[in-house]
Design a protein around this nucleic acid. Sequence first.
DNA 1: GCGTGTCGGTGACATTGTCACCAAGGCGAA
DNA 2: TTCGCCTTGGTGACAATGTCACCGACACGC
Lengths: 202, 202
Amino acid sequence: MSQAAAAIQPVAIPRGTVLFRPDDACAGFVVVSAGTIKVSLTAENGREIVLYRVRPGEICLQTFGCLVNHGAYSAEGIAETDLVLEIIPAGEFQRRVTAEPEFRQRLFSAVAARFADLERLVEDVALSSIEERLARALLRLAEGGAMVDATHEALATEIGSARAVVSRQLGAFARDGLVAVERGHIALVDPEGLKHLAHPAE
Amino acid sequence: MSQAAAAIQPVAIPRGTVLFRPDDACAGFVVVSAGTIKVSLTAENGREIVLYRVRPGEICLQTFGCLVNHGAYSAEGIAETDLVLEIIPAGEFQRRVTAEPEFRQRLFSAVAARFADLERLVEDVALSSIEERLARALLRLAEGGAMVDATHEALATEIGSARAVVSRQLGAFARDGLVAVERGHIALVDPEGLKHLAHPAE
DNA sequence: GCGTGTCGGTGACATTGTCACCAAGGCGAA
DNA sequence: TTCGCCTTGGTGACAATGTCACCGACACGC
C-alpha cells in the first residue's frame, strides 16, 4: 500500500533478548509482527512486576513518551518469544501519523488498549486479594488451554508478589482440586472453579 | 487561531461534581481550562485508589478508549475544584487530530504523561512500602508548600490503603518529628526528612 | 445545652511479605 | 557413574499491612 512502509525491513530478534531498559535512549517506534514482548518494572529492592504484553499487530508504546516528550522510559522490555519487529524511525512515524488515518487508528487503539491494561493492573494490585490475582493470572497465561508453563517465581512477578506467597496459594488451590502443580508448570484441573475465584462478585 | 475552536464554549462545573462513572457512555473529548479533575478506581469491596489528576491545559484521556474503541471506561472522575472545561465532540476531535499538528502534539503529550503517571502508580502500589508511599503522597499533595489539606481517609484513597494504616503511619511520622497532625490537615514539619523517606535509594 | 455525623486513635486478628533454610530435581564435568 | 552447582519450590518464623470493631473527640446545626 504505502511505498515508504515497504522500505522498512522487518527485524528478527531471538527469545530472551532485552529490547529496552529503564533510561535507554529510544531507537524508534516498534510494531510487533510476530511473537510477544513482555514489559515489566523492577524496583531498587529487586521486586518486579509485569506491566503488560505487546502482541502481533500491536504497537509497543514504551518508546512513545520518549519520542513525544524526550522523556526516558522506566520499564524493561524482553522478547518473551522469538520476535519479528518493524522499527519505524521518528520522522517516518510523524509522517504516517499525519498522512495515514489507518496508521493513526492503530496507534490510538494501541493507546486505548494499554490504558485499559494498566488500569486493570492497578485495580488488581491495589484492590484485589492474592487468591483473585493468582487465579486471574493462571487463566490469562493459559490462554484458554489447561496448562501454564511458568515457575512460581515467574507467577510471582506476574502478579507483583513473592514466590513464597505464590507457592502457598498454589498449594491451597491444589488442596481444593483446582490445579495440579509440577516442577515448572501448573495444570488447570478445574478452570471453572478458578474463574469463580477470579471474579468473586459474579 | 482556529475558527472551529472558537465555536466551542467553555463549560463551568462546580467542585464535587461527578464528571463520569464506570460504564458511562462518553460525551466527548474533554480539555481542562481551569481546576483539576481527580480520576479514581473503586472496587466491588469498596476500596478505592486515585489514579491521577488532570490539570489545566491537559486533556482528560478517560474518554479516549470510548471514542476510539467504543469501549466503556472503568474509572470515576470528580471535579476536585471548580472547573472550566471545553468539550470537543467526537467529529471535531477527529478533524483536529487530522488537521492541527499542534492539537495532535498536545494529545500525544497527554498520553505520554498519563502513561508515566500510571506506571509510577503501579510501581508505587506494587513495589513500595506504606512509609514510602505516604511520604511521597504528602509531598505531592503539598505541592511545595508545608501543609496538606486532607483527612486520613482521603490520604488512604490517595495511596490505595486503609484509613487505619494511614493513621498509624502518620502517628509514626509525628513521633519522629516529620509532621504535625491536626484534624483535617497535616503540617510538614521536616520536608527534607520526608523526601529522604520517599526515595530510600538516594 | 443536645443530637448527629465526620474524623481519627487503637486493639485484635487476618492476610500478605520477607527471610532463612532445606530438600528435590536438572545438568554438566571429571 | 559420582560429584558439584544451580534452579525450583516447600515451609517455619516473623514483620508489615489490611480488616474490623469500637470509642472518644470534634464540628455543626438545632
